[in-house]
Nucleic acid binder design. Sequence first.
DNA 1: GCAAAAGTGTTGGAAATACACCCATGT
DNA 2: ACATGGGTGTATTTCCAACACTTTTGC
Lengths: 239, 239
Amino acid sequence: MTTRQKKIKTILEELKHDGIIGISVDCVIFGFDENELKVLLIKSDLEKFENRWSLLGDLVNNHEDLNQAANRILQERTGMNDVYLEEVKAFGEVGRHPAARVVTIAYCSLINIQHHQLKIHANELHWHRLNTITDMAFDHKKILETCYEWLQKRIQEHPLGFSLLPKKFSLRELQNLYEAILSVKLDRRNFRKKFFSMDLLEDTKEHETDVPHRPGKLYKFNYDKYKKMERKKWFGIDF
Amino acid sequence: MTTRQKKIKTILEELKHDGIIGISVDCVIFGFDENELKVLLIKSDLEKFENRWSLLGDLVNNHEDLNQAANRILQERTGMNDVYLEEVKAFGEVGRHPAARVVTIAYCSLINIQHHQLKIHANELHWHRLNTITDMAFDHKKILETCYEWLQKRIQEHPLGFSLLPKKFSLRELQNLYEAILSVKLDRRNFRKKFFSMDLLEDTKEHETDVPHRPGKLYKFNYDKYKKMERKKWFGIDF
DNA sequence: GCAAAAGTGTTGGAAATACACCCATGT
DNA sequence: ACATGGGTGTATTTCCAACACTTTTGC
């Protein structure tokens, strides 16, 4: 058990004793590899959840914002800064944590698996394919599902997906990403048309290498253009 | 100052003293009246925010879920149960509360102004037109804006709007509601077409009365049909 | 030259928009 | 009778979905 883990245990005991609500942050960290969506998990510390997988989380310090806490967790575990990170939902059921009453704020993060190295390998930190995850500690399964559904919706409205890809990527990779996250098959031509018509992809003039077929062009995402875009869709009732 | 308010003050002092984070719930309660969107506010208790308007909120009790806390606040202030209520976002900046570190979970609620009577008139509880609100206590202005934007988006994807209307309503009222919330003008014929094609409105066979023109039909919303509807839109990238 | 995936256009149908006239009621 | 908003239909445009062949590369 690390120093931090011992400290957390002490804090939780105090909270329990005093009847005070603790507050934590849990990060659902998604990655994309081998054309599959992955999520970064560790083994739970708690005896009660022995051998169960857990999201990366921690208690929020008194002097840090929620976002800062989430970023800290990401930094500690993946060594990455400047990562896509967004709050999704609070989970605060009375009995969700066995040691004390703890309300947690769930964050969703998207990172490029290639671009980072896992810093701390304690507790068997590693990537899991989404549909192979069964038992999880706490209510983390529910949190994960909520974040996954959130991602499916969000990725259709905002260009988050690019955070999961290398800086330069082929259209095929982009399509694979969307197909994996939404679990649908898409028409290649219509997919291209859609993205080119949005005019957010910048041609790098480079091509794939070492592929056993005609190499595809590599693009990068032009985030500036996206920011400048006038958001049109002002109205479209669609229950 | 009420008993509850004194108690809160004590709790906050303790939290501050012990360096512990408090957790509260704040409700943005929307109503619709005179073709305008309204929000329910009270005057703040705190000296620092004297004469500023504040959302309805309270600290979360140790034994209650977040949803329960939000419902309790609604019940205490409006006397209403079974009200539309949904979590929107957590606000947890370090300095947001002057008395102590308090993380708050913002809820959005929609109620029919006609159907309820304000129960407690302490602190000048009453309805405000949205665009007349300027100074607010804490970061409540930001919370309100976030919830309003959330509502604008949400109402286009889910039939929340009906919570703001009487059980029986005319299509004109429904359109006024959408126009007010989205602040757009809509074509009357296309609006009707849209809603009728969704087949979620049930004809009550009744009509408006006491109107100085041809009375409109009254409808009610068929929520069962909505629940049974197969959600189509599986894919539609639209940044 | 063959396998494998990249790249490219067209067409038909559905949905969204724009738009104008008659109808029922109160005064 | 007239003022007010309710109720309806159609033509046009725009967007989306379906679909097949040629090109480039590695082996």
